[in-house]
């Protein structure tokens, strides 16, 4: 009996906590439904008499939102693909082979996370300008994939470490090459980690603003964060549009997270220690 009461107690606590957690997210939905000027109100209600979906209509019908969305999907898709391919192969090399420089590579992967990203902007720009990659998706994709890679490699390596080596040894006995053993045996069992890697690469590119702002100059090429920011003029933000845009931008990532949350728990290893 006491167990039931305890469960009930914990359950109600968690529900309250979840509601509090969700409030900021709901808050922005509330703003997106108001008019531009009504965002400074004292009402806590999310839906008021003045609320409407007008901002959403304007967003899709009168702005280039759909173009930005298409661009963002394109960039994120390529980045995700590149991220998964590169992280899965190099993570494997780091997990299974003891070669010269392995430790150096592993520590430098961690080191890359330690440098303040803002100071990388100027060199990025100079590099891309020299390579004539300004205003092209290629430049953006190279930067995004590479900045997301260190974490993804670490994460893949950690997961491979948990897979017994006997698995591919068996496959090798059956006459598989190293590479085909990797493709046929290891990759399929690593799907949770691959999903996480994909998710991280996607997130890194989907909502990135700062790098996109220096690389992309042609409005035709804008990605979502850039487009969204253009509603936010320094002295006259179109808040309704901005909030509506923010909600729409958040939807794909949220859906991804929700549908992949099963894998998140089993696939996110962040490089656990071998026992």
């Amino acid at each position: 009996m006491s167990k039931k009461i305890e469960t009930l107690f914990i359950f109600s606590f968690l529900v309250l906590f979840t509601l509090a957690t969700l409030y900021p997210a709901l808050n922005i939905i509330g703003i997106s439904l108001r008019t531009d000027d009504a965002f400074q109100t004292r009402s806590l209600a999310l839906w008021t008499a003045e609320s409407s979906f007008r901002s959403y209509f304007t967003l899709f019908l009168e702005t280039d939102f759909l173009t930005w969305m298409k661009n963002s999907f394109l960039v994120s898709f390529v980045v995700t693909l590149t991220g998964v391919v590169l992280a899965s192969t190099s993570g494997y090399a780091l997990s299974r082979f003891n070669f010269m420089g392995r430790r150096a590579v592993l520590s430098s992967l961690l080191m890359t996370q330690m440098f303040p990203a803002t100071m990388l902007l100027l060199p990025f720009f100079i590099l891309l300008a020299k390579l004539k990659l300004i205003n092209s998706y290629l430049g953006l994709i190279i930067i995004y994939s590479s900045t997301a890679l260190p974490f993804c490699i670490w994460q893949m390596k950690g997961y491979y470490d948990t897979i017994p080596a006997a698995l591919e040894e068996a496959a090798r006995m059956d006459g598989c090459s190293r590479f085909s053993a990797f493709i046929k045996v290891i990759l399929p069992v690593s799907s949770p980690a691959l999903v996480i890697t994909a998710l991280f690469s996607f997130m890194a590119s989907w909502s990135e603003y700062v790098v996109a702002a220096i690389v992309l100059q042609d409005p035709e090429l804008y990605t979502l964060p850039l487009g969204l920011k253009s509603f936010q003029a320094s002295l006259a933000t179109q808040w309704g549009l901005y909030a509506a845009g923010a909600v729409v931008v958040s939807i794909p990532v949220t859906i991804l997270f929700i549908s992949l949350s099963r894998f998140l728990v089993s696939g996110l290893t962040v490089g656990s220690v071998k026992g």
């Binding site: 957690t21 969700l22 900021p24 997210a25 964060p225 923010a246 990532v253 997270f257």
Partner: peptide
């Protein structure tokens, strides 16, 4: 799932 949302938002 709902508790993960803060992480998912840009």
């Amino acid at each position: 799932t709902l508790l993960i949302i803060p992480w998912a938002l840009p």
